Computed example of a mutant assay.
Amino acid sequence: MRDHGGPGDVFLADCPARLAVEVIADKWSVVVVYGLSQGPRRHGELIELIGGISKKMLTQTLRRLQRYGLVDRQAYAEVPLRVEYTLTELGQSLIDPIDTLTRWAENHGEALLVAESAPE
């Protein structure tokens, strides 16, 4: 039987690893991080890139990712105000795992749809 109590144990409610999983497992977090993987983007560019996300949800997701140190927000003193979002070093460290997850999703997405529509 596995000992649940060491550092990085996602089974513990107060484990930092569990918090990390919760932050990136949010519906939009991975998509937004992946959208920023090619470089800085403005809010409107992300809206155009990410199908199905509302402006409000994008704003909330970006703020959450900022709060956890994955995204940086840079406002430029221009008229009109220009704001760009970029990945921090910590955010960049998610790109390889997201690439792996994306490849898995592309390879198995159809199987998930088939399983979902199968009679119980």
Rank of each mutant, 00 (worst) to 15 (best):
P7M: 03
G8T: 04
V114M: 04
E106R: 13
L113S: 10
V79K: 13
T86Q: 05
L70H: 12
Y85C: 07
D26V: 12
V71I: 08
I95S: 02
V21E: 06
K55I: 04
Q38A: 14
Q66K: 12
L58F: 07
D9H: 08
R63Y: 00
R18V: 01
D9M: 02
H43S: 01
D26E: 10
L81S: 12
Y85L: 02
G35C: 08
A115T: 15
Y76R: 10
A77Y: 08
G109W: 02
P97G: 03
L112R: 06
S54D: 11
A105M: 13
G91T: 04
E110K: 10
H108V: 09
G6Q: 02
S93W: 03
E110I: 15
L90Y: 02
P97E: 02
M57S: 15
W28Q: 12
V23S: 05
I53G: 07
E106F: 08
Y34G: 12
A115K: 11
I24F: 10
V23N: 12
Y34R: 14
E116T: 15
A20K: 09
I53P: 08
A25K: 06
W28A: 08
P97N: 03
L112I: 13
R41W: 03
D9V: 09
G91D: 00
G52Y: 02
E84T: 15
L87E: 08
I98F: 09
H4A: 05
V10D: 00
A111V: 15
I95Q: 06
I95M: 03
I24Q: 04
L87F: 01
Q66H: 11
Y85S: 05
R2W: 01
Q74F: 14
A17D: 13
A77T: 13
G5H: 04
R42E: 00
R18F: 00
E22W: 10
R42H: 03
G35P: 03
E106A: 13
C15Q: 04
